[in-house]
Every structure is written in C-alpha cells, then in structure tokens.
C-alpha cells in the first residue's frame, strides 16, 4: 500500500500540472493582418484626347461575409469612343489600405486580367502591357466602345503561378466580377 500511496501522489501531481495550463482563449484573439484580401476593384477610363476621367468601383470593405458589398457600379461609357483603361485592386480591410495593384505588377508573370464584354460588340479591349515573358497583364489597356446598348463586363483576375501561358485556362480566379455595362 505504501507504493500505492506514492503513486497516488504522483497522480495528483500530474493533475496539478495538466490543469495549470488552462488559459483563456479570449486573450489571444486578434485581427488577421497576414492574410491578403482583395476587397475593392476600381476600373478607371480616360477618354482619349480629353481629360475626362470616370471610375467604376466594386467595394466590399470587410471581404466575404459580414456586410454585403457597399458599391457595385454600372460601367457607363459613351458609344464609339476610345478609352485608356486602368484597373486597381485594394485591400481596404487593413489600416492603412494596402494596394494590391503593386503586388500584381511586381508578380506580373503570375497574373492575367481578362475583360469579357457580353454581347461582345459592346466593347473591344486591347492589352497595353506585358510581363517579362511577353504575355499580356491587363493592368492598363485600350477599350473601344461600340454602338449603344446594355450588357455585362466580366472582369477576371487569374492567378497563375508557374503556369502563365497567355491563355485564361491555367490557375484560378482571384477576382470574378460581372459589372453591368451601359453604352449610351
């Protein structure tokens, strides 16, 4: 029985150790600063030969979930007009707001932007930039509008690490938005 008693003490000691490590998980909860989010997309159109600048925005400042997107503009452009088009991506969930456009530009050989109007006659897009491998990027380009009409403009940011070949298939969508498009 002496042995048993010793072992019982060892047991109690064990319990003491195990339970002394309890902690409150509430003290450790903190906002996520490391994960990158794209919360906003800004499409900027500069009418060629003028200084007319118009911007159209999708914005969901807290990312997926939580609050619904606060802005999803209709892209309204003039018919038969040539625009210089630039696209920006922001992470507005962080303070200060972090500009993802720069990161995309630095890693342009892993990214491809695709603009798909439907019906296709509404707008013609021509890439105005290229990466080190001479494949297009799509951060700047030329957009030529067609006749009056309404439809959609799909904006996709394809993330294609190690697989970019100028085609849309490789990789996956980081952005996939259907803006309403109005040519008037």
């Amino acid at each position: 029985m002496k042995m048993n008693r010793k072992l019982s003490w060892a047991l109690l000691f064990g319990v003491a150790i195990t339970f002394s490590q309890c902690k409150d998980s509430g003290e450790e909860v903190k906002p996520d600063e490391e994960n990158e989010l794209i919360t906003s997309v800004v499409l900027t159109f500069i009418e060629q030969g003028t200084s007319n600048v118009t911007s159209f925005v999708y914005k969901d400042a807290d990312g997926d979930g939580g609050n619904a997107p606060s802005r999803f503009d209709t892209v309204a452009l003039k018919p038969n007009t040539t625009y210089t088009m630039t696209t920006e991506f922001l992470d507005e969930s962080k303070t200060p707001v972090s500009d993802i456009t720069e990161e995309i530009s630095e890693e342009s050989d892993e990214h491809l932007l695709i603009y798909t109007p439907s019906p296709a006659t509404l707008l013609t897009y021509t890439y105005g930039d290229a990466d080190v491998n001479k494949f297009p990027i799509g951060l700047t380009g030329k957009a030529v509008t067609g006749a009056k009409g309404i439809g959609k403009l799909k904006v996709q940011l394809r993330h294609q690490p190690g697989a970019k070949n100028g085609k849309p298939e490789p990789g996956s969508d980081d952005v996939n938005l259907d803006f309403n498009l109005k040519i008037q």
Binding site: G14, E34, E36, E103, E106
Partner: peptide
C-alpha cells in the same frame, strides 16, 4: 477507475497561393 488525459491538436493549413506581398510570403505562414 480514474483516467486523466491531455491532448494538444495543432493543425496548420497552407493555401495554394502565398500572399503576393513578398515580406509576408517570405514568412511562409
């Protein structure tokens, strides 16, 4: 009979893409 036990489950999941930001990507968290 008396049983006590302590378990620690440590799960780390890595997404396909690292962050685009180079300094964050370098952490490889």
């Amino acid at each position: 009979q008396w049983t006590i036990a302590r378990q620690l489950n440590d799960r780390n999941e890595f997404d396909l893409h690292r962050p685009r930001n180079d300094s964050l990507a370098a952490l490889n968290h």
